[in-house]
């Protein structure tokens, strides 16, 4: 317990959460064409609590975004904040995804 002084990184935090990934089904998909044509605000990158949305050219370089659903906590923030409807958001199939135990 003495080691708890050093804050955990987001990756370490996400490792604590049990997630059963459905490798055959991405429950969220973004449409890069819509993003490219319309997006100037990148609300998904700022809103996501699990850093599933990242700028391709590094953390500070606002621009094209890549998305990976694997660490998704299924909160739905990206669906609501995207003003362009580029986020096609569905829940994971039954039994897949996050499984909280202490929340």
């Amino acid at each position: 317990m003495s080691k708890s002084n050093k804050p955990k990184t987001l990756e370490e935090k996400l490792d604590l959460t049990k997630i059963t990934t459905d490798h055959n089904y991405a429950h969220i998909e973004i449409n890069p064409e819509i993003c490219k044509a319309k997006c100037t605000t990148y609300d998904c990158v700022y809103g996501c609590p699990a850093d599933c949305y990242k700028f391709i050219e590094g953390e500070e370089a606002e621009g094209p975004v890549v998305f990976d659903y694997v660490a998704c906590l299924e909160c739905g923030t990206c669906r609501l904040v995207c003003p362009h409807g580029s986020v096609d958001w569905k829940y994971p199939k039954g039994g897949f995804g996050v499984e909280f135990k202490h929340s």
Partner: peptide, 23 residues
Amino acid sequence: FKEHSYIKKLLKDAEMIEYSAHI
């Protein structure tokens, strides 16, 4: 937010066991 001394004291010596989010 967790860097504030008030929060640090609340969480002192406690071990994180889960991270979650919801809207």
